[in-house]
């Protein structure tokens, strides 16, 4: 018994050290920084102040927050719209096919997401694959602006975050008893009625899970906004990055970070209030 406990203690130590040094301490440092002042050379003046928090309640910043939220919402909705047909088509397939397809969804994600985002440039730029194809087919005359704007960001976000919607939604949809759908059919429900009255209410927990896991990263993924938004379009993610690396205003960057953490925290709380389980989010 004792030996076992000792083993447990030893095996857990690396995790504790990792969590403290790489997660807890930096977070506390950020929290601490958010109440300090900065000087004009990027240094930090250690003096307690709330200035940074007053600064973010400014119209310019609020606009960025709102836009981030909007991009997050659009990304989430797009992910839902793409994931549902995927899940519904797979529902009627054998579990072998289901497993294979859900695994295939994950395969691209073994590649670094930064590289994959650069890959999108090849597709989206003015003389890229998509524009070339559209023009060759005479669907469009002039190239469309598919990147260095909000469209580019949304395409990139949706692509990157799609698996986080597909996986929880699939698991919810696959769980729906086939006899429920047959019963609805038997009672005269059309395909749309079955979707609206049976599929959606029975898989809504999957939609909640997915939405949370898509929306939160979507307001923070700065590299997608940087690469596909051309750095012109600000979301919370690259706003923070810019404060740290470009404007060298660490205290303000920290304050925005704390603000982002707060939003995340509130969303998770709402999710729990609605009956969501933390386990479904991967034990977050």
């Amino acid at each position: 018994m004792k030996k076992n406990n000792l083993f447990k203690a030893i095996s857990i130590i690396p995790v504790i050290i990792y969590s403290i040094t790489l997660i807890l301490l930096p977070l506390l440092y950020i929290f601490f920084l958010s109440f300090q002042k900065n000087d004009s050379y990027g240094g930090i003046i250690y003096e307690l102040t709330l200035t940074n928090y007053f600064t973010i309640i400014d119209l310019t910043y609020l606009k960025v927050f709102l836009k981030s939220a909007l991009i997050g919402i659009i990304t989430t909705v797009l992910c839902i719209l793409i994931s549902y047909p995927f899940a519904l088509i797979l529902k009627n397939k054998s579990s072998k096919v289901q497993n294979l397809c859900t695994k295939l969804v994950m395969v691209p994600f073994l590649t670094n997401s930064l590289i994959r985002t650069y890959g999108w440039i090849v597709l989206l730029r003015k003389n890229g694959v998509i524009n070339a194809t559209l023009q060759a087919l005479h669907i469009t005359n002039a190239p469309l602006n598919l990147m260095y704007n909000n469209i580019g960001i949304i395409i990139g976000m949706t692509y990157t975050l799609l698996p986080f919607m597909i996986l929880p939604l699939c698991s919810a949809v696959f769980k729906i008893d086939k006899s429920l759908i047959e019963a609805a059919k038997d009672l005269g429900a059309s395909r749309m009625q079955i979707f609206k009255n049976i599929i959606v209410p029975e898989s809504i927990s999957g939609v909640f899970n997915g939405s949370l896991m898509v929306f939160i990263p979507a307001i923070g993924y700065f590299f997608i906004a940087d690469i596909l938004g051309g750095g012109k379009e600000m979301i919370i993610g690259n706003l923070i990055k810019n404060q740290f690396l470009t404007a060298r205003n660490w205290p303000l960057g920290s304050a925005i970070s704390i603000f982002l953490i707060l939003i995340t925290f509130i969303l998770v709380k709402i999710y729990q209030k609605l009956g969501g389980k933390m386990d479904d989010l991967g034990g977050m």
Binding site: D177, S179, A183, D186, L187, S190, P201, E202
Partner: peptide, 19 residues
């Protein structure tokens, strides 16, 4: 189509809509 047939089924597990 089953939706258009004037028959109804009582399923083995009843298949009541849980929500």
């Amino acid at each position: 189509d089953p939706t258009k047939r004037e028959v109804n089924t009582i399923f083995q597990n009843f298949a009541l809509f849980p929500h």
